[in-house]
Design a protein around this nucleic acid. Structure first.
Length: 425
RNA sequence: GGGGAGAUACCAGAGUGGCCAAAUGGGACCGACUGUAACUCGGUUGAGAAAUCUUCGGAGGUUCGAAUCCUCCUCUCCCCA
């Protein structure tokens, strides 16, 4: 199956420039996608462009991931309703390094045939002077053309700085530079990047008399129309320090059926046959969440590791399976810790505990699980709190060292899904 | 440069001297149902056991009493030039 057909059935194809498909079918093409260093980790939304590169490489083409050391200094106005804050250089550099490390996990840099590459546009922008740039690049694009882009048009009312206005030229010149130096003829990205990408192909036509192509993936949304990639705590990050593998796994496990079908196509490399088989199986017994489990397992293993996946599975089993106070008590400390590695931890002093402590104080003042006593009390009264998997009926119930699992831990639970580990020390 | 409108809790948005810890909607969290769903329904959403205390852009003031009135400051938006 060729690349465009593959992307098509996976729901990864939104817009494609005429001639792109023909080019891809004819010869190996070098294509790139830019990543914006706004944070020190990629999040799952960034996995869409990552998958585009993965598919590009699997189809025998040459993928390049561009990290935006220069573009990150300016700030992409696409999809933004207000002017962005600039990042300082140090943050930027740190973010770039972190993202690069993550990108390396998904692409094959070792193959001799069509190895992936990473480039940083700061490398070619740092020595390019402003006069030189507006003379050599800016001369080829009219302000009228630039204003017609949605990213600019949408901001005309509220205003936008010259800095952000010029963003598309910077990104457009990346394309020119890569066209010249590495023979890049394709740029991909999210659908919000279409405007920036076409400024690039336009520049290539005018500056080089060359032809370059574009392809974008749709913006991923949830079935209910809300934004994809957020969980209670905010973004779902690839960095295990920001989103633990357990939480990461749980995020995917909890997606709606409709979304699971969609996401498994987008984020995994399972074949159409495999996916359809899973869907058929899922339809037989939706409560087993076959699709969600397959999706969560596949992506957790690829983003983190097999070990991380196994621990996430084990933790999920204990937390949501038949886990009782007894099973918790029987667990070895080592297993216990590895299972609960990803959940938030709070400290309590052993001395305080051995004197005996009531539930409200334990969960608020002593540990900070709840920000105030009132909130802890209300939640307990509402039947929303469990200790060591046992529902707390009385806010005045007292605890002491007897409560500790393995002589050290208390497992607190707010609602069904939010766990907190209280460590006595 | 001229004229006008406004700033209220996570967001939107009422309230224009006491009955206001502040309507209503959304969001968030909890509960019931369920598939660790969706839908629906119920509860909670400044702190405190309570008395009470701290909140309505900021600083002062008037008043027995201020989100509400006055003064100054900061910021935002709209219209005209």
């Amino acid at each position: 199956m060729n690349l465009t057909a593959e992307l098509q059935w996976r729901g990864l194809l939104h817009d494609i420039m005429p001639g792109t498909e023909e080019l891809l079918n004819k010869e190996p093409v070098t294509g790139y996608i830019g990543f914006d260093p706004t944070a020190d980790s990629l999040h799952i939304g960034n996995m869409v462009p990552v998958m585009l590169l993965v598919h590009l490489q699997r189809a025998g083409h040459n993928p390049i991931a561009l990290i935006g050391g220069a573009t990150g200094m300016v700030g992409d106005p696409s999809g933004k309703t207000a002017e962005r804050n600039l990042l300082d250089l140090e943050t930027l550099r740190h973010n770039l390094a972190c993202q690069e490390k993550q990108l390396r996990k998904f692409l094959d840099f070792e193959t001799t045939k069509n190895p992936a590459r990473i480039v940083n546009n700061y490398d070619w922008f740092q020595h390019l002077g402003f006069l030189e740039f507006i003379r050599d690049v800016g001369k080829h694009i009219t302000v009228n053309y630039m204003m017609a882009k949605d990213s600019v048009k949408n901001r005309l009312e509220q205003g936008m700085s010259f800095t952000e206005f010029s963003y598309q030229l910077i990104q457009g010149f990346d394309f020119v530079h890569l066209y010249r130096t590495l023979g890049v003829r394709l740029q991909m990205g999210g659908s919000d990047q279409w405007g920036n990408i076409t400024t690039g192909t336009e520049l290539i036509r005018r500056m080089e008399g060359g032809e370059a192509f574009a392809m974008t993936a749709p913006l991923v949304k949830k079935a209910d129309g809300s934004k994809f990639g957020k969980s209670e705590g905010g973004n779902v990050w690839l960095d295990p320090a920001k989103t633990s593998p357990y939480k990461f796994y749980q995020f995917w496990l909890n997606v709606a059926d409709e979304d699971a079908s969609k996401y498994i196509r987008i984020f995994t490399l399972l074949t159409q046959q495999q996916i359809e088989a899973l869907e058929a199986e899922h339809a037989q017994a939706p409560h087993l969440r076959i699709l969600q489990k397959a999706l969560a397992a596949d992506i957790t293993e690829r983003v983190h590791s097999k070990d991380d996946l196994e621990q996430a599975l084990e933790a999920s089993q204990i937390l949501f399976g038949q886990g009782t106070t007894e099973t918790l008590q029987r667990m070895q400390e080592e297993t216990f810790l590895s299972v609960f590695e990803g959940i938030p931890q709070h400290q309590v002093s052993k001395a305080q505990l051995s004197e005996g402590i009531d539930a409200v104080t334990l969960l608020s003042e002593a540990t900070g699980v709840f920000p105030s006593r009132g909130e802890a009390r209300k939640m307990i009264q509402g039947g929303g709190v469990s200790i060591n998997k046992e529902k707390l009926a009385d806010e005045n119930q007292r605890f002491n060292t007897e409560t500790l699992l393995n002589g050290k831990y208390i497992l607190a639970q707010k609602g069904k899904k939010q766990y907190f580990l209280i460590v006595a020390s």
